[in-house]
Write a protein that binds this DNA or RNA. Structure first.
Length: 479
RNA sequence: GGCGACGUGGCCGAGUGGUUAGGCAUCGGACUGCAAAUCCGCGUACCCCAGUUCGAUUCUGGGCGUCGCCUCCA
C-alpha cells in the first residue's frame, strides 16, 4: 500500500487515485531567466522518481511541469542584458532541458508556458470577479483573500496570525495587505497583453491554476514543488482554483526539502547556489542524481563536494560488482548458488517496494541495494558453476533493471563507467599494460610498479586478474 | 510575533517501545610479487532534564541548539 505524505493534512495517507489506474500530477517548474541550480535539480529528480514509481506500479501517469516565462525577474534580466524577453526565456528553457536531460529526468508529458495561456487567465480573473473573489484597482486585479474561508489551509496559518513582525508589502491599491495580484497593469515598455482592464500581464500564481485545470481537469491527484512554494504560491493557487470552480483543486500536495550549503538554504538571494552546469563539469550526472537520492525527499540535504565524492565511491562499488560479474568465467564445476541468488533478488524487490511505498523512501532503497550488492559479491566469491551463475546474472539484472527504471541510476555498463574518465589514448594505455606484463614476467617488479604508479597519477588503476590486467579510470580531481 | 521541521556512532544517513539499517572513513584477518577489488571480523550511537512503562533513541512535557516559511525562491 502506497503511503504519501500530504502537506495539506500534514500526515502520511494512503494514495488513492481519483480515477482507478491513473495519476494526474502537476509540478511547479522554474522561472526561466537563468541557469538552474542544484535546488532545481533536486526537485526535478524527486518528482521524476515519484513519477517513475507510479509508472513502475502500472499507473498511467500524466505529468505536467510548467515554465514561468513572464515575470519581474525576466523583464529585469532582459533589460540588463539588452535582449528581447522572449529570446531570454527561450534560451533558458533550452538550457533547462539540457540540464534535465543530463540528469536522466524524463521529459514531462506537458510543459505549458504561462504566456500561452493569457486568454484563460483573463477568463479566470473575470470568473473570480463575478463571484466576488477579485476586484479591480487602478488596472490591477487582486484576489480578495478574506472572502475565501479556507485561506491558509495548506500552509497552516491564519490571516490574523500573519501580521505582526512580518514583512508586508505596502500597496495602497489593496483592500487587505495579503490580497495578491492576479493581473497587473503593465508599465510603458513592458511586455503586455490586452485585457478588459487595459494592457497588463499576469500575476505569478494564476498561471498554475489555469494551466493545471486546462490540461488535467479538476480535481487532479498530485500537486508538487519545493517547500518554499507552499506559501504563498500554492496557497494562492488553491484560493484561485477552488473559488473559481467551486470544487477541490488537488487531492495530494507533495513538497521536497531544500538543498542546503553549510546548513543554509541554497538560494539566489544568499548567493550560495551552484548551478547544475558547473557541478556537472566536475561530476558525472549520475553521481549528482545518486547524491540527490541519498536523503529522503522531505528532509533538507546538505550539498558539498565531500558528499559528491562519497556518492561517486558508492557508485564505484556498485559498478565494480557488476564488472566482476561480467568478467566472471563460470566452469562446469563450482558451487550451486541458484537458490541464494534468486533469494537475493526477491529480498531486494520486497524491500524496494516497501521502502518506496513508504512515502518514496529512497535512502532505504539504497540500503537494500547495497545489501544485495554485498550478497552478489559473496556469491560470486563462492565460484558458482555455470548454471547457477546464469541464475545469479539474471537475478542481478532484475535488481538493476528496477533501479535503473525507477531511480534512474546505474544506467551505464561497468565498461562504460570505468572509461568515462580515461585521460590517455587507449592504445597508449595498452602499450603500457603490455610493458608492465613483460616486466612482471622478467621479475622486474620495480619497473612494473613504476608503470603502475605512473598510470595511477593519470587516474588509471590497474588490476591484475587471472585473465590478465584490466584497468579502471577514475576522475582526477585537484581538490 | 505566528507557524513548522530537525538534533542518531569519525562523517553522511534510515529506522524502531525490548532482537542487523546502509554508505564512506579507520583498524585487524584472508587473498596478492606489491597493489586493487572482494570476503570475514570490529563500532553497545541516538542533544539535555523530567514523566509514562517491566523496559525509550523511539511516546508525553519542559529546556537547549540548528534550520525553514510568514517577500521572489525548487
Amino acid at each position: 500500500m502506497l503511503q504519501v505524505y500530504n502537506t495539506l493534512t500534514a500526515k502520511k495517507e494512503e494514495f488513492k487515485p481519483l480515477t482507478e489506474g491513473k495519476v494526474k500530477m502537476y509540478v511547479c517548474g522554474v522561472t526561466v531567466y537563468d541557469f538552474c541550480h542544484i535546488g532545481h535539480a533536486r526537485s526535478s529528480t524527486v518528482f521524476d522518481v515519484i513519477r517513475r514509481y507510479f509508472l513502475y506500479k502500472g499507473y498511467e501517469v500524466t505529468f505536467v511541469k510548467n515554465f514561468t516565462d513572464i515575470d519581474d525577474k525576466i523583464i529585469k534580466r532582459s533589460n540588463e542584458n539588452n535582449i528581447f524577453w522572449k529570446d531570454l526565456t527561450k534560451q533558458f528553457i533550452d538550457e533547462h532541458d539540457a540540464d534535465m536531460d543530463a540528469l536522466n529526468i524524463l521529459r514531462p508529458d506537458h510543459t505549458p508556458k504561462a504566456t500561452d495561456y493569457i486568454p484563460n487567465m483573463i477568463k479566470m480573473c473575470e470568473t473570480l470577479m463575478e463571484k466576488g473573489f477579485a476586484y479591480e484597482s487602478n488596472g490591477d486585479i487582486y484576489y480578495r483573500v478574506q472572502k475565501f474561508d479556507d485561506y491558509g489551509k495548506l500552509s497552516n496559518r491564519k490571516l490574523e496570525d500573519m501580521m505582526a513582525g512580518a514583512r508586508i508589502e505596502v500597496n495602497d491599491n489593496k483592500e487587505n495587505p495579503f490580497d495578491f495580484v492576479l493581473w497587473k497593469a503593465s508599465k510603458p515598455g513592458e511586455p503586455s497583453w490586452d485585457s478588459p482592464w487595459g494592457k497588463g500581464r499576469p500575476g505569478w500564481h494564476i498561471e498554475c491554476s489555469v494551466m493545471s485545470e486546462d490540461i488535467l481537469g479538476l480535481p487532479f491527484d498530485i500537486h508538487g514543488g519545493g517547500r518554499d512554494l507552499i506559501f504563498p504560491h500554492h496557497e494562492n493557487e488553491i484560493a484561485q482554483s477552488e473559488a473559481a470552480c467551486g470544487c477541490e483543486f488537488s487531492r495530494y500536495w507533495i513538497h521536497n526539502g531544500f538543498v542546503n550549503v553549510n546548513q543554509e538554504k541554497m538560494s539566489k538571494s544568499l548567493g550560495n547556489f551552484f548551478t547544475i552546469r558547473t557541478v556537472l563539469d566536475e561530476f558525472n550526472a549520475e553521481i549528482v542524481r545518486y547524491f540527490l537520492l541519498t536523503t529522503h525527499y522531505r528532509s533538507s540535504l546538505d550539498f558539498s563536494q565531500d558528499h559528491l565524492l562519497e556518492a561517486e565511491k558508492s557508485l564505484d562499488r556498485i559498478y565494480t560488482m557488476l564488472d566482476e560479474i561480467n568478467r566472471f568465467n563460470a566452469g562446469k564445476k563450482g558451487t550451486d548458488v541458484s537458490a541464494e541468488a534468486e533469494n537475493t533478488a526477491k529480498v531486494f524487490m520486497e524491500k524496494f517496494v516497501s521502502a518506496m511505498d513508504d512515502d518514496f523512501n529512497t535512502p532505504e532503497v539504497l540500503a537494500a541495494l547495497f545489501e544485495a550488492v554485498r550478497e552478489f559479491n559473496r556469491l560470486l566469491a563462492a565460484k558458482p558453476e555455470k548454471n547457477s551463475f546464469e541464475t545469479l546474472k539474471e537475478s542481478c539484472t532484475k535488481v538493476f533493471k528496477t533501479v535503473a527504471d525507477v531511480l534512474g541510476i546505474i544506467t551505464y555498463t561497468p565498461q562504460q563507467w570505468f572509461r568515462l574518465n580515461l585521460s590517455i589514448p587507449e592504445d597508449e594505455l595498452k602499450t603500457a599494460i603490455d610493458q608492465r606484463a613483460q616486466a612482471k614476467k622478467d621479475k622486474d617488479f620495480a619497473k612494473a610498479d613504476e608503470i603502475r604508479n605512473g598510470l595511477k597519477d593519470k587516474g588509471i588503476e590497474l588490476l591484475d586478474t587471472i585473465e590478465g590486467t584490466i584497468y579502471r579510470a577514475k576522475k582526477i580531481r585537484n581538490l
